[in-house]
C-alpha cells in the first residue's frame, strides 16, 4: 500500500463527496445547502488540485484539468454567494441559492470525472 496514493485518492473522493453533499437538496432552498460545506469543498478541491500538480502523463493532465474546472466553478459559486449575502442583500435569497448550487453542481460533474479517471487508472494498472 502506498501512502501517497491513499492521500491522493482520499482527497479526490472527499472533494467529490463534499461537493455532492452541498449540492444535494432542493436547488433554491437555502436550508438544504450549508455554506460551510461549500467552504470545505473549496478547500479540499484546492488541495486535490495541488496534489495533481507536476504529473507529466496524459492522464495526469486530464486529472489536473478536471480539478481546475471544479475549482473555477466552486470559486465562482463562492463569489456569487458572497455577492448575494454581503453586497446585494435585498435580492431574493432563493435566486442566489439556486445560482450557487447550479455552479456547484457543475463542479460536481468535474469532480465525478476525476473519480472516474482515478478508478479507471487503478483498474488499468491492476490488469
Amino acid at each position: 500500500m502506498n501512502t501517497e496514493k491513499v492521500v491522493f485518492g482520499f482527497f479526490i473522493l472527499l472533494a467529490a463527496t463534499l461537493n455532492f453533499g452541498f449540492v444535494w437538496g432542493d436547488i433554491d432552498v437555502a436550508a438544504h445547502h450549508q455554506v460551510s460545506e461549500l467552504f470545505a469543498a473549496i478547500v479540499v478541491n484546492l488541495v486535490a488540485t495541488i496534489l495533481k500538480l507536476g504529473d507529466r502523463t496524459q492522464v495526469g493532465a486530464i486529472h489536473l484539468a478536471s480539478s481546475l474546472v471544479a475549482d473555477v466553478q466552486l470559486l465562482i459559486a463562492a463569489a456569487v454567494w458572497t455577492w448575494g449575502s454581503h453586497v446585494q442583500v435585498g435580492h431574493p435569497e432563493s435566486e442566489i441559492v439556486a445560482s450557487v448550487v447550479s455552479l456547484a453542481a457543475g463542479a460536481l460533474l468535474a469532480n465525478l470525472v476525476s473519480v472516474v479517471l482515478l478508478i479507471t487508472e487503478t483498474l488499468t494498472f491492476r490488469r
Binding site: S36, F39, V43, V47, I50, L51, L53, G54, R56
Partner: peptide, 29 residues
C-alpha cells in the same frame, strides 16, 4: 519540464498555505 519542475517543488508550500488559510478562515467563522 521547467514548469513541472517548478510546480513539483511548490507543491508542499502551496498545500501548507491552503491548509493554513482553511484553518484560519474556519476559526473566524
Amino acid at each position: 519540464s521547467v514548469l513541472h519542475l517548478l510546480l513539483r517543488r511548490l507543491r508542499l508550500p502551496l498545500l501548507v498555505v491552503i491548509v493554513v488559510f482553511a484553518i484560519s478562515v474556519a476559526g473566524f467563522v
